[in-house]
Structures are given as C-alpha cells and as structure tokens.
Write a protein that binds this DNA or RNA. Sequence first.
DNA 1: GTTACCAAAATTGGCGCCAATTTAGGATAC
DNA 2: GTATCCTAAATTGGCGCCAATTTTGGTAAC
Lengths: 223, 223
Amino acid sequence: MTEMQSVTETAAKERDVTDLVLEDILTGVLPAGTWLKQIDLEKRYDCTRPEVRRALDRLSQKRLVEHVPNRGYHVYLPDGRRAQEVSDIRVILETAVADLMVERATPESIARLRALANHFDEMTMVGTVLEHYEANLAFHRELLLLSGNNELVDLVSEIRQRTSSAPVSQWRTRARVERSAREHHMMVDALEARDIARLKRLIEAHIRQTGDVAPAESAARQA
Amino acid sequence: MTEMQSVTETAAKERDVTDLVLEDILTGVLPAGTWLKQIDLEKRYDCTRPEVRRALDRLSQKRLVEHVPNRGYHVYLPDGRRAQEVSDIRVILETAVADLMVERATPESIARLRALANHFDEMTMVGTVLEHYEANLAFHRELLLLSGNNELVDLVSEIRQRTSSAPVSQWRTRARVERSAREHHMMVDALEARDIARLKRLIEAHIRQTGDVAPAESAARQA
DNA sequence: GTTACCAAAATTGGCGCCAATTTAGGATAC
DNA sequence: GTATCCTAAATTGGCGCCAATTTTGGTAAC
C-alpha cells in the first residue's frame, strides 16, 4: 500500500480525481478491502488533500467505499447477497423495456450497436482492462438508450458500479468473456428480428452470468 | 433570499447539514430555482463553510441541485420529462416485485402496513408537511421490504427524491391526498387477498397519479 | 515469556484564510 | 438620455494548518 505511485501518476493531471479513483477500483488496481489513506492518494494522483477528501466522500455516497469515522475509507468488500440483488434489479429494468427497444430500433441504431459489439470483440484481444470494461458499458448504454428513457440509462450505469468490488475479475476466464461477446451479437440479432421474448431471455442470461452467483442458484433464489 | 434565517436555525444543531437542506428542498421551503448562497446557508443552519460545501456537493451528486462553476448552486428546476421517466422506472420496479411481495407477506407485515397507512391518514390531518411526506415514505418502504431485496428499497428511496422539485406541492389539493390515503389501504387489501394483478394495477395507478403528468398521457407514452 | 500499559508517531478531520472570478453599480462619454 | 466601460463589492473555491483520535511499538512488570 505504500509503494503505489507508478502508472497513472504523471499522465493524469487535468481529470477529476473521483473518476481516477473510481477507475482504479473498477479495474481492480485498488482491490476490495484496501484502506485508502489520504496521503497515499494525494501522492498517487498528484492532488491536494481537499480533492482527495471530496473524492472519498463522493465514492462513499455511491457506496463504493465505506467510511469508518476516525479510521478512514476502504474499498467495499464484495457482498454476494447485494450483488445478487443488484443483478435482480438490472434484470427487472432491462427486460422491462425490451418491447420499447424493439419498437424504437432503427437500422441506424442497430448498425451502431453492431459496431459497438465489434468494438467489444476487438478490446477482448488488444485493449486494456479499462477499455474493455468501457466498451461493454458503451454497448449496454446504446442498447438502453433505445428505450427512450434517459433516466433509466443513467440509473443502470449507477447501479452497475455498486456491485463492483472486483468487477472485471469476473472476466478472468477467456471463455466467459467470449461468451459475453457472442451474446452481444445475439442481442442485436434478436433486436433486428424484433423478437421481444428472445431479447428478454438473452438480456436476463447475459446479466445473470456476469454475476458471481451461478445461474442455477440465482434462478432458485428468484423463484 | 437574504432574510432566510428563521425557523430551523436554533433547533437543528446536531444533525447533518445535508439532510437539513434536503428536507427544506423536499418540503418546498427552498423552492425550485433558488440560488443557494453559501453564506446564507452557513447562517441558516449555523454551520461552517466546509460543511455547507460538502452538503451542496452531495446534493449536486444526487442531482437535486445544479452546480454552475463560479456561479454557485441552485435548486433544480422541475423537468416534466424527467419526472415522467422516473415515474416509469418506479412503475417498472415496484410492479415487478408484486408477486414476491404477495408471496412473502405475513399477517405481521400486513398489520404493520395497516398501521403505517393509518399513520399516513393521521398526518393528513394533524402532521407537518415533512411528517406527512415521511409517513408516505415509510409506508412504501415497508411495502417494498416485502420483496426481500434491500437494494431495491434503497434504490427506490433514492430515485423518489430525483423528481422532487416541488414534491409535496403535488399534494396541494386535499382530494388527491385523500385519494392517496385510500389507495394505501386498497394496496394492503389486495396484498391480504393475494391478488397480484390487482396489486400491480393499484401500484401503477398510485405512482402515476402522484406524477405531475396526467395518467392518460403517461399511459399513452408507455404504450 | 507473556501481558499490560504508556508514549510517540501517524492519520483523520475540522476550520479559516486568501486568491480568482463574477456581478452590480456608478461615472463618463457620446 | 442612453449606452458602455471601469471600478468595487461580493461570492465562489482552492489550499494548508492544527487539534483530536487512533494505532503501533517499546518497555516494564508479573
């Protein structure tokens, strides 16, 4: 914890500290449970004390870090139950608007989605962890935008971050990443075929598999 | 804007400033569009400058106030479209778990809900605006708790606040408040009768009517 | 050898000051 | 009389210092 002062240090000047810390938590640079000492962050991101404290306060509001009075802030420990609950919420929200998405889909938007799905595929090969993560986000964002509900797009982006203590570590196995990539394309296919039921099934399966609970168990819990 | 320094000033010492400002926005004491000068807030809530700024930062993260750099913070102006979108999200979430609520409902939880519905009725008569608002929140919270998804309970509480520029002003007319009170009891009835479809219909109608868009239009938009 | 206590170092967190930017008002020129 | 520019007051926002609390390491006593 003391020798962190390496990669992001020089390159990242003008950007917001909150986003930088967020990125490092999301990409696993700052693992779950890590105590975030204000002095260390100050040096690591080359910023002032108040900036660090504002970032930590924001992240604790977002429930990405926990604040223990007079002890400090640490990255939230993974909570299986919470992750499960968030997955359930995502399934509810994203499948609920499947009909709207089919209704509003145009050839142009489908083309954009294909491009984003392809971009995800590329990042699987050559991109960094963060680029890969963001490519996935971009695809799902574009998909949800079809619902016409901007508030929903933002909300899902938010709750997506909630489970993420070790969000990309879920993609450790190559098999799972490739399956995700394939599912992206299948979702676009279903959208193009205007098959609402199939799209819903695909969305649910896609969300559940990325959770850290086995699909079988999550289905049991749901029932 | 200069002579605000009256009610809450002396009584509120030990509580968090963020909550105090939040309350005053929710109850309409600080109307939509109001510029929140840091000095005024400092005096009004008898707190320090950093406390004010932390509160304003948190509220802007929650999108209850807007931050204009070098200009200050002002209460968000009501946005019909956003309010509509938030209502849609609430309908999706709260009706989606209706079956879970019926499944998990016990005689004890139903009794608690009846008590809370009665409490809301009382507050209609004698309570302050804030008490009334919180009585409504408490009822819906208890109802959602039946879903067993704590994350969902928190999420709905959060997005509930998003529309609230003038949240209680929606309750200006006595007729509407009384209708809400009746609907609370009807929801408990449906829950007790284990009538999922009816419960869903009630929940949707209850949420839509509190929005500032007419039910007819919102239904049209949904379809 | 182990445990309890004390002291010193480190870390958090509250608070206030000062610079930068904006706004409003007044004076001057047209 | 009106418009424009300039100056002054006010407000925001960045930054650093110091007190309070906690933790750790050492020492002494049992």
